[in-house]
Simulated assay, not measured.
Amino acid sequence: MAEQTRRLVLGGATTGVVTRCRDFTRRALDDWTWPAYAEETEDALLLVSEAVTNACLHAGGPRELVLRHSPGRLRVEVSDDNPEPPSPRPAGSRSRPGGHGLVLLARLAKGWGWEPAADGRTGKTVWLEVTAPEPGTEGS
C-alpha cells in the first residue's frame, strides 16, 4: 500500500480548531481501518489534539494539518506561521496553565520533531509519528 495523505487547511484559525482536527483525524483513521478503541488510535487522537492546541496557544493557530498514513505508521504534521521551535515550558514556570503537550509527544509518539516551513513561508511544521495498530487489535 502506498502512502495516503489527508490535508486540512486551517488558515490560522483557533476557535473550534482542536475539535475539527480531532474529528478530521478520526474520520481518516476510520477510513484506514484503525480500530476505534485501540490504544494507538486513542494516542493518535490525543497527540493531534495536543499538537493543534500548542499551535493555537503559542503560534497564533495552525495553518494546516496533514496526515500521512503508510503501512505500520501515521505521521501527523501541524504547520503554523511562527518560526520559533517548540520548547517545553521552563520548570517552575506558572505564567499559564498547561505545559504538558511536548511531554505527551515525547512519551506517546514513536518520534517527533519540527522543521522550518518548506514552502518558503515564515513558520514551521511540528511532526509526530504513531505506530499503526496491528490488524484485529481492539482496546479494552
Rank of each mutant, 00 (worst) to 15 (best):
Glu115Gly: 10
Thr19Ala: 15
Arg6Asp: 09
Pro86Met: 06
Arg121Asp: 11
Phe24Ser: 04
Glu40Thr: 09
Arg6Ser: 13
Ala28Cys: 15
Ala51Ser: 14
Arg73Asn: 04
Val66Pro: 03
Thr125Gln: 04
Asp43Ile: 03
Ala28Met: 05
Gly120His: 00
Leu45Trp: 07
Asp119Tyr: 01
Ala44Tyr: 03
Pro86Ala: 09
Pro90Trp: 12
Pro71Ser: 13
Val130Arg: 00
Glu129Asp: 15
Leu67Pro: 01
Thr131Ser: 13
Cys21Gln: 07
Asn82Asp: 15
Leu108Cys: 12
Ala132Thr: 14
Val103Ser: 13
Leu74Cys: 05
Val18Gly: 09
Ala2His: 11
Glu134Val: 14
Val130Gly: 03
Val66Phe: 01
Val9Leu: 12
Val78Leu: 06
Ala59Phe: 02
Ala2Val: 01
Val78His: 06
Glu3His: 08
Leu74Ser: 03
Pro62Glu: 02
Glu42Ala: 14
Ala132Asn: 14
Gly123Pro: 12
Val130Gln: 08
Pro88Leu: 04
Leu105Tyr: 07
Thr125Met: 06
Arg89Gly: 03
Leu102Cys: 05
Ser93Phe: 06
Glu138Tyr: 02
Ala118Arg: 10
Thr122Ile: 12
Trp112Gln: 13
Leu8Ala: 11
Ser79Trp: 04
Thr19His: 12
Gly61Gln: 02
Ala59Asp: 11
Thr53Leu: 10
Leu29Asp: 07
Arg26Cys: 06
Pro35Tyr: 07
Thr33Met: 11
His58Val: 00
Arg121His: 11
Cys21Val: 13
Val17Cys: 05
Trp34Glu: 01
Trp34Ile: 00
Arg107Gln: 15
Phe24Asn: 06
Trp114Asn: 14
Lys124Met: 15
Gln4Lys: 14
Gly98Glu: 05
Val9Gln: 14
Pro135Glu: 09
Asn82Tyr: 02
Arg73Asp: 07
Arg63Lys: 08
Pro90Phe: 10
Ala13Gly: 10
Asp81Asn: 08
Gly11Lys: 12
Gly12Lys: 06
His58Ala: 00
Tyr37Leu: 11
Ser87Pro: 00
Arg27Gln: 09
Trp112Pro: 09
Thr125Tyr: 05
Leu45Met: 09
Glu77Arg: 03
Arg94His: 12
Leu57Lys: 13
Ala44Glu: 01
Glu40Asp: 12
Arg73Leu: 07
Glu77Ile: 01
Ala91Tyr: 08
Val126Gly: 02
Ala2Ser: 09
Arg68Ile: 06
His69Thr: 04
Gly61Cys: 04
Ser79Ile: 05
Ala132Arg: 15
